[in-house]
Design a protein around this nucleic acid. Sequence first.
DNA 1: GCGGAATATCTGACTGCTCAGATATCGTTG
DNA 2: CAACGATATCTGAGCAGTCAGATATTCCGC
Lengths: 162, 162
Amino acid sequence: MGEEITTAEEAAGNDLVLAFGRFLGAANRLEYVLGRAIEERCGISHLMYEVLLILAREGGQGMSMRAISREQVLTTGGVTRLIDRMEALGLVERAANPADRRGRLVRLTEAGAARAVEATRVHVENIRRHLVEPIPVGHREWFAEDLQRLSRSARDAIPRLR
Amino acid sequence: MGEEITTAEEAAGNDLVLAFGRFLGAANRLEYVLGRAIEERCGISHLMYEVLLILAREGGQGMSMRAISREQVLTTGGVTRLIDRMEALGLVERAANPADRRGRLVRLTEAGAARAVEATRVHVENIRRHLVEPIPVGHREWFAEDLQRLSRSARDAIPRLR
DNA sequence: GCGGAATATCTGACTGCTCAGATATCGTTG
DNA sequence: CAACGATATCTGAGCAGTCAGATATTCCGC
């Protein structure tokens, strides 16, 4: 490890680092493909799907754009434009916020809630069939633990990165 | 499980499916943040970084744009434009391909190879410090196995999805 | 209650991708 | 070897994001 690093391979260092790198690449690509599946089968982008889920979780009283942008990998400007499109599709509606007239409240429409359910069914079916079912039954508890541990590691690491 | 599904939460179904979903989200966001770190500290986009790695792995004789696009989540048109920019930055160069005059060969320049090493060092350092080191020493072998298993699952699932 | 900093949203300019179609070359088949 | 389909790359048009700055409103200290 005290050697001078001169090629990318050497810089990659030990096995665990390599494993993380390959693994993140695989997970990323998988997420991408899952997103494309939703786009093709449900007619909404994966970002729209995420917003639908966030709004569904939040319940009926609506949510500010700011709050949405904080949950997403999307700037406030991006949220404005995304909500514009979702509103045009009839998935959400903007209402005045009497408590703070700077902002507006975004709410799911009936159609939006229905679409969230439909897209989730597609998404879950994909995960179940292609990721969960291939795992031998006896190993599934292990996997669940692995996944939770890894999710936690990832979440903890994000704020420290840069 | 035989019940009618009417909300997104119900559609999400069992714990393992939920764990996969959350986990993919976390991994995705992590990859995003790692990519941004490379952009800020090395001055190249994460896609440029990936292309640098691919070319470094391929060795000195160069690679067709088509081959690059097959390795990436990028269409051939996107590769053309990405290589345009990388060429302008002096990271790669295009050479005529005597064996097939439809295409051209893309090769790393000296500067490109150096940048690949530098960016990899940043990337690896981030992974090591923020992902590997927080894992207790006694658990690292476990993690390496978990990661490889998960990478394999993900890779196997991708072609079946849609 | 007034003035200024903070906050929520929107918008213009720009970037970087995709898609579809144009162009050039290759390879095969009769 | 001529013709035709396949393949590699490039390009115009369009779309969806970022960033920075404009506007409207709120909050806070005096």
